[in-house]
């Protein structure tokens, strides 16, 4: 059973985590100017509209950076996971995990694709695995 911490959810961010529970990977988008952004925010920084929607993302991206929090060990994980900074092909970035790749085989810039992992309270978070070049 996963001991991974549940995501913290706030009024402005719950849509992201709720989508993950449905197996959907989304970002927030401004209805008016069509701009995507992450992390979520209550108002569009470009046109200041509060009319937000979500866009389903391809889930494809590349690895910008990775670390393993060895000491102290990561809370909620039996072994330290690979925390990863991902840049999605839609141009936005997020922190996630890279799973299924030995650390010796990790290459900055490698292609990755989204998957989902369960948390201790039955929620879900997006994680990434190695992918072929698209």
């Amino acid at each position: 059973m996963s001991m991974r911490p549940d995501p913290i959810q706030r009024i402005d961010t719950a849509f992201f985590w709720e989508a993950c529970e449905r197996g959907e990977f989304v970002a927030q988008k401004c209805e008016k100017c069509d701009v995507l952004w992450h992390p979520p925010r209550p108002i569009c920084p470009t046109c200041h509209s509060t009319e937000k929607t979500t866009q389903k993302l391809s889930g494809k991206g590349r690895l910008l950076s990775w670390v393993k929090q060895v000491t102290p060990g990561a809370f909620g994980f039996p072994e330290p996971p690979v925390a990863a900074l991902i840049e999605l092909e839609e141009g936005i970035r997020l922190v996630s995990n890279l799973e299924g790749v030995e650390t010796d085989d990790i290459i900055i810039g490698m292609n990755v694709a989204v998957d989902f992992a369960e948390t201790s309270g039955g929620k879900a978070v997006p994680i990434f695995r190695a992918a072929e070049a698209s």
Partner: peptide
């Protein structure tokens, strides 16, 4: 601390982890 939401469930939970992740590139 709003950034914690986007780091904590992925095991990036300490200042050292955040610093290393941002300096990695």
């Amino acid at each position: 601390s709003t950034f914690l939401e986007w780091c904590f469930p992925f095991g990036a939970q300490t200042p050292a982890a955040w610093e290393a992740l941002s300096c990695g590139p």
